[in-house]
Computed example of a mutant assay.
Amino acid sequence: MFKTIRFAAIAATASLIAVPALAQSSPVLGTWATAVDVQGQKIEAEMTFSQAGGAYAVAIKDGPMPGAPADAPPMESKISDVVVDGSKFTFKRALTTPQGAMNLTYTGTVEGDKLTGEVGSDFGPIAITGTRK
C-alpha cells in the first residue's frame, strides 16, 4: 500500500511539473497591426494568431486597398499550413484578387512586440512588419 501511495505522489508531482510547460505559449500568439509596402503603396492588415487543441490558426483582416472604394468588400482568402515554432511562424494564404488568384507564403519572427518577416509571392519577396495590438 505504501508503494502505491508513493507512486501516486510521484505521478502527481510529475504532472504538476509538466503543467507549466503546457501552459507556456508562443510570443507569436495575439493580434498584430501589420503593413507591407508594394510598389510604394502601404497596405495594412490585422493578423491574429491563435491556438486551440494543439493547432495554430491565423485570421487576417485586410485594411482598405489603395485606390479601392472605401466600401469595397474584403478579398477572399484561405489560410493553411500554419506552423508556429517558438517565436517563428509560417503559413500559406490563397488570396482571390480582382486580377486573379495569388498564392502567398508568410514567414517571420516575433521579438517582444515587433513582428518582422516576408511574404513570398509570384512577384518576389515583400517585407512585412508589425506591432502587437
Rank of each mutant, 00 (worst) to 15 (best):
1 M>E: 08
2 F>Q: 15
5 I>V: 08
6 R>H: 13
7 F>P: 11
8 A>R: 14
9 A>V: 12
13 T>K: 06
13 T>W: 10
14 A>T: 09
17 I>W: 04
17 I>M: 11
19 V>N: 05
20 P>L: 00
23 A>D: 08
23 A>Y: 04
23 A>P: 01
27 P>F: 08
29 L>A: 07
29 L>Y: 02
29 L>E: 08
30 G>I: 00
30 G>W: 01
33 A>P: 09
34 T>D: 08
37 D>F: 08
39 Q>G: 08
39 Q>T: 10
40 G>M: 03
40 G>T: 06
42 K>I: 12
42 K>D: 10
42 K>E: 14
42 K>W: 07
44 E>D: 14
45 A>C: 04
46 E>H: 14
47 M>R: 07
47 M>Y: 11
47 M>L: 11
48 T>Q: 07
49 F>Q: 01
51 Q>A: 08
53 G>T: 05
55 A>S: 14
57 A>M: 08
58 V>K: 01
58 V>T: 02
60 I>T: 12
60 I>D: 05
61 K>N: 14
62 D>Y: 15
64 P>Q: 06
65 M>W: 13
67 G>A: 05
70 A>S: 05
74 P>E: 07
75 M>D: 12
76 E>M: 12
77 S>T: 02
80 S>K: 14
81 D>Y: 02
82 V>T: 07
84 V>S: 02
86 G>M: 04
89 F>R: 00
89 F>H: 00
91 F>R: 12
91 F>P: 03
95 L>I: 10
97 T>A: 07
100 G>Q: 00
104 L>A: 06
105 T>G: 14
108 G>M: 04
108 G>K: 00
109 T>Q: 08
109 T>L: 03
111 E>S: 15
111 E>T: 10
113 D>H: 10
114 K>P: 06
115 L>C: 02
116 T>G: 09
117 G>L: 04
118 E>F: 02
119 V>H: 01
120 G>V: 00
123 F>R: 11
123 F>K: 05
124 G>M: 06
124 G>Q: 01
124 G>S: 03
126 I>K: 02
127 A>S: 14
128 I>Q: 06
128 I>C: 07
130 G>I: 03
130 G>A: 03
131 T>M: 10
131 T>H: 07
131 T>D: 05
133 K>F: 08
